[in-house]
Design a binder for these strands. Structure first.
Lengths: 131, 131
DNA sequence: TTCGATGTTCGACGAACATCGAATTACGAA
DNA sequence: TTCGTAATTCGATGTTCGTCGAACATCGAA
């Protein structure tokens, strides 16, 4: 990392609204999903998203203050991980339900391929399908 | 109600981030809790919060667009209710975990009364204890 | 110590948001 | 029709938020 050691709040001091606010942003939700998908830590540098470093640092700080992630410093680099076990104690079921949720875009795509199978049309696949 | 009929989105078209954003605001979270605490509908006018009518209307619109609540019009007044069953289908466990969560302030108060019992002090019960 | 790599902090900017009061729409009752 | 009540919309205001580049702090290695 760089300057001073980070602060990690006790989860009992974290309000639900803080956690929901932290999760209510596409980039941060993506980071959380990324961390959840890999069981364990992830090197800071391996979080590659199309945003500036300072922006990533900003988002990680918000996730940290919300008690969602923690980071461990090792020499000059740091590793991020989800505080999933602790979160389960403070907000039972919350993280799980957030992670389990499917994108609306995915549901729409599934519905469409189903209806396409129904009346056999192959017309035009003009769905933007956000990345 | 007043102007035109309201729109209620199909829950499959609602993204998780939209729901989380809607819930990530103290006033709106309070409204959702209020609705959940009473099984059924609640008259618009009975939602009394220390905010202007126009602000309440604004918040209800956001909750509506997020698929969290629906309103039924009867003559000139309207009734609000949670779309809890539908939400459970689209976002399993999410609403439940949000509603089950205790305030950090409550946890702190409980911890304090416990430690007070431990070393017998009765000092000063200066916990604001939000209504 | 000097250098390079790694994150964080610091302004600064525009966009989005919460809030309000006033105007507006819709309906029932007099 | 006219009046009053109920809820939404509009316009304005101040605040918060996401984003960036530049400057800074911290550490390991040369």
């Amino acid at each position: 990392m760089a300057p001073r050691e980070q602060e990690h709040p006790a989860l009992n001091d974290v309000e639900l609204v803080t956690v929901l606010s932290a999760l209510a942003e596409p980039t941060r939700l993506r980071i959380v999903r990324m961390l959840a998908a890999m069981e364990g830590e992830r090197a800071w540098k391996d979080i590659d998203l199309p945003i500036a470093q300072s922006t990533l640092s900003h988002h990680l700080k918000i996730l940290r203050n919300a008690g969602l992630v923690q980071n461990r410093t090792e020499g000059t680099r740091c590793f991020i991980s989800l505080r999933d076990a602790e979160l389960e104690g403070r907000f039972p079921g919350l993280l799980e339900s957030v992670l389990a949720c499917r994108d609306a875009a995915v549901i729409r795509a599934a519905e469409e391929s189903e209806s396409r199978r129904d009346h056999g049309g192959t017309e035009d696949s003009s769905v933007p399908a956000a990345p």
